[in-house]
């Protein structure tokens, strides 16, 4: 059974406490939407999960891999990254590689696939995000939405059990957001476990299984979308939602 379990997670940075005692369990196949004002620690939470950032207290378990406070040993980091793919707000595609090579690079270098195998997988995944016709384009030749879909395909190429999405539509024009979000909705149908940090309340309502509201490094509320988004218990959540939904 694959699940992500976060216990008492604390992360400090330069005297500030970014995450303050996060308790959260994400079950297999679940899509969790994480909402919250900027600076609330949403991105840091994802970075801790993917061992891109060390934390100060608590524990994270991803499947059967356990992350502990302090610098994460490289082999543990690589194991956890094999389990969890990550998609970034600013795409972070490799600008010198064509779309297909962006996707095929990981399988070739890390999974040890042959060039041909890696390419086939790349083609499959580009097809899955609806971009097979853009395989030979360089990132600079793609639109924002296309870039982000390539980035998703790149993460999926490593066959992760879970996907971490860090505000992946924030840098996109409104009319391009749906194409990325609909890819996520498809992935959910395929049973991928996802943690989606987002400002898209509509997406959270329609696609997420649960919604988690983060503020000042603490979870204010976590629960079913209707419950959290329609009937928030605390005034702070109400205020935040009021601002986001307008």
């Amino acid at each position: 059974m694959f699940e992500i379990e976060i216990r008492g997670l604390v992360k400090r940075l330069g005297g500030r406490t970014i995450l303050n005692g996060i308790e959260l369990t994400i079950e297999q196949g679940e899509t969790l939407a994480v909402l919250g004002p900027s600076g609330s620690g949403k991105s840091t939470l994802l970075r801790c999960l993917n061992a891109l950032t060390a934390f100060d207290a608590g524990q994270i378990r991803v499947g059967d891999i356990v992350l502990r406070p302090g610098k994460v040993p490289r082999d543990v980091a690589i194991q956890v990254r094999r389990q969890l793919g990550m998609v970034f707000q600013d795409f972070a595609l490799f600008p010198h590689l064509r779309a297909i090579d962006n996707v095929a690079l990981g399988p070739r270098l890390v999974l040890g696939l042959t060039k041909e195998q890696a390419r086939q997988r790349g083609v499959q995944l580009l097809k899955r995000v609806g971009l097979q016709h853009r395989a030979e384009a360089f990132p600079a030749q793609l639109s924002g939405g296309e870039k982000q879909r390539v980035a998703i395909a790149r993460a999926l190429a490593m066959e992760p059990k879970g996907l971490l999405c860090d505000e992946i539509t924030s840098a996109l024009d409104p009319e391009l957001k749906w194409e990325v979000l609909s890819v996520l909705a498809d992935l959910k149908k395929d049973g991928l476990t996802m943690v989606v940090v987002t400002h898209e309340v509509g997406f959270a309502r329609r696609v997420a299984d649960r919604v988690c509201i983060l503020s000042d490094g603490q979870i204010l509320e976590v629960g079913l979308p209707q419950q959290v988004l329609e009937n928030p218990k605390t005034a702070r959540v109400q205020q935040f939602l009021a601002r986001v939904m307008t």
């Binding site: 891109l52 990254r81 094999r82 970034f88 972070a92 490799f94 690079l105 990981g106 993460a155």
Partner: peptide, 8 residues
């Protein structure tokens, strides 16, 4: 970071 998240 993107490369690291792929396991490179």
């Amino acid at each position: 970071e993107a490369a690291a998240s792929l396991g490179l």
